[in-house]
Amino acid sequence: MTRRLGWFLAGGLLVALLLAGVVSNFASSSPDGLDATAREGCTFNAEGEITGGTCIAQQEGSHQLADSPLADYGIRGIENSFLSTALAGAAGVLITFGIGAGLFRVARRRKQDA
């Protein structure tokens, strides 16, 4: 890997960290297109529980890993929601980069060995 590519990667990673760590706190908290469609046809109470009607979301089950320390893009135990989202986002970027770069490196090595 050349030095110039290293700088490009570092710059790109910094942008991703800023987006996930800072800008993400200003993201819309409305349900996304799929979720909103899934909720259409039902009525909800203040806690977001379904109170009536027919909609796709009625069948929604809980996540097997809902107790993960990073569940729902926050770090469990950190009360400040800005900080919690920021750290979870930054951790996600670094973990994804690490896993991605690692896997693709292994895939490339295998090719050379073959």
């Binding site: 991703a16 987006l19 991605g100």
Partner: peptide, 19 residues
Amino acid sequence: APMAGLVAAFIFAVQMLNF
């Protein structure tokens, strides 16, 4: 290979940005 890692990390970051 390293570019792919960056693309994955960037997509992760931008997927957090609901508009």
